[in-house]
Design a protein around this nucleic acid. Structure first.
Length: 413
DNA sequence: TCTGGGGTCCTAGGACCC
DNA sequence: TCTGGGGTCCTAGGACCC
């Protein structure tokens, strides 16, 4: 018997956030709907008009529309009906309102999306156990050894997955199957929504090479701009450049990677488990704040971010020892500062104190639009305790104690 | 009326040690 | 009497992704 052909699938949920919202509000099906912006207000407004028939009974006219929205924020997801108007992910809401003022605007309800995320991934795992989590709405799956994974190049298994997910969640997805992750990722976009694409090794020149370089996962706007200046626009053009020339222009690692990627070479395995490197919280203010004039408000936000972050760490069972801050000025320039401490911690007071020291190292004359706090160099809390028992007292782990109250730390703002 | 929030990885320089 | 390379850790910034 021949060795099975390596077949990797990329599965991408279609307009995921918006589709989950449509499960709650089926009366919005077919209408332009965008998700994004401020969370609470619209939600509460909707609950007020919710009649005996529940959420599905709310009349379409009661939903907030883009036209009435004022404030910051971007679109995270748009329904396909909304995309007709040129609105899509990452577009500012104010700009979107000009393109499609009648679009219905729903707030992001991440808990709900996470619920469906866990659900569709569990369904996949029952059928195909080798799955790599790539965020709330997409995964890679190794089809190679799965029953049916080789039939029709993977199409039979892909259809089975689509059907199982649709039956149990009411959601659709698109799947690309290819010899590796890189091509599978591109292939999953070929037939969106609710599509399947099979790309074989020998299809590289006909189906991948005509695409723009930007379609390669890992080539972003900056790299694309440099390539354009070098008169390279398609993946085929990139593939036929001499490897050494790409290395001269992009550096050793990036140049070699680009050459491999364009030639369809990618040996990365499907990774089943991974540990987080950092956990963070950040927030963009409703309006820009000044470190002096809005000191009290900023201080409260800062403390609250630290508390939420500590809560995240405790809930997930991690401690870290590199504490950092990020801020973004009104001109959108960002700076970061971080500091590594001797003790692993998940304590809000320790985080707040150390982050406060970081804040003192940064210019605070310009107005701010964003503030963030981050904890890195993470360790599982259990492993950290083990580490502690083999380490001198000065390196002890400090977990959420009451001795380090936030109120006791110095106030920068 | 520009531009969210949560991440990962890479680079590069300096400190410090051997 | 001034000069090596590595290796590792820390920090800052930036590209990129979902």
């Amino acid at each position: 018997m021949n060795a099975p052909i390596r077949r990797i699938a990329h599965l991408d949920m279609d307009a995921f956030y918006a589709s989950v919202e449509l499960l709650r509000y089926p009366q919005l099906k077919g209408l332009p709907v965008v998700i994004g912006g401020a969370r609470r207000r619209q939600d509460e407004a909707l609950r007020l008009v919710q009649g005996e028939r529940g959420l599905a009974g709310i009349p379409v006219e009661a939903f907030p529309v883009l036209r009435d929205y004022t404030g910051r924020g971007v679109i995270t997801t748009a329904t396909y009906a909304a995309r007709q108007f040129g609105v899509g992910s990452a577009l500012g809401l104010m700009k979107a309102a000009r393109l499609c003022p009648q679009a219905i605007l729903l707030p992001v309800d991440f808990d709900e999306y996470r619920k469906y995320s866990r659900l569709f991934k569990a369904i996949i795992l029952e059928i195909a156990p080798l799955m790599e989590d790539r965020g709330v709405d997409e995964v890679y799956i190794d089809f190679t050894e799965v029953p049916g994974g080789q039939r029709e190049g993977g199409r039979v298994l892909a259809r089975l997955l689509q059907k199982a997910i649709a039956d149990k969640t009411g959601l659709t997805c698109s799947i690309g199957v290819a010899p590796n992750k890189l091509i599978a990722k591109m292939a999953s976009e070929f037939n969106k929504p609710n599509g399947i694409s099979i790309v074989h090794e020998e299809d590289l020149q006909s189906r991948i090479w005509p695409l723009a370089c930007r379609k390669i996962n890992g080539i972003g706007p900056k790299a694309d701009e440099i390539l354009a200046r070098l008169h390279i626009h398609t993946i085929g053009e990139l593939a036929t450049q001499p490897r050494e020339w790409l290395i001269d222009n992009f550096g050793k690692a990036t140049g070699a990677w680009m050459h491999d990627a364009a030639n369809g070479r990618d040996e990365r395995p499907v990774v089943l488990e991974s540990e987080p490197v950092s956990i963070s919280r950040e927030t963009t203010f409703d309006h820009d704040l000044h470190a002096v004039r809005d000191r009290a408000e900023l201080g409260a936000i800062f403390t609250s971010l630290c508390e939420k972050l500590a809560g995240d760490l405790q809930r997930k069972g991690y401690v870290g020892k590199t504490i950092g801050i990020k801020l973004r000025y009104d001109n959108f320039k960002s700076v970061t500062r971080d500091q590594t401490i001797a003790h692993y911690t998940d304590d809000a007071g320790v985080i707040r104190h150390t982050a406060g020291l970081c804040l003192k190292r940064v210019p605070l004359t310009q107005r701010l639009r964003l503030l963030g706090v981050r904890v890195g160099s993470l360790l599982k809390a259990a492993e950290a305790r083990e580490f502690e028992s083999n380490t001198p007292v000065t390196h002890a782990v400090s977990t959420h104690s009451t001795t380090n109250s936030i109120a006791a730390t110095d106030q920068l703002f």
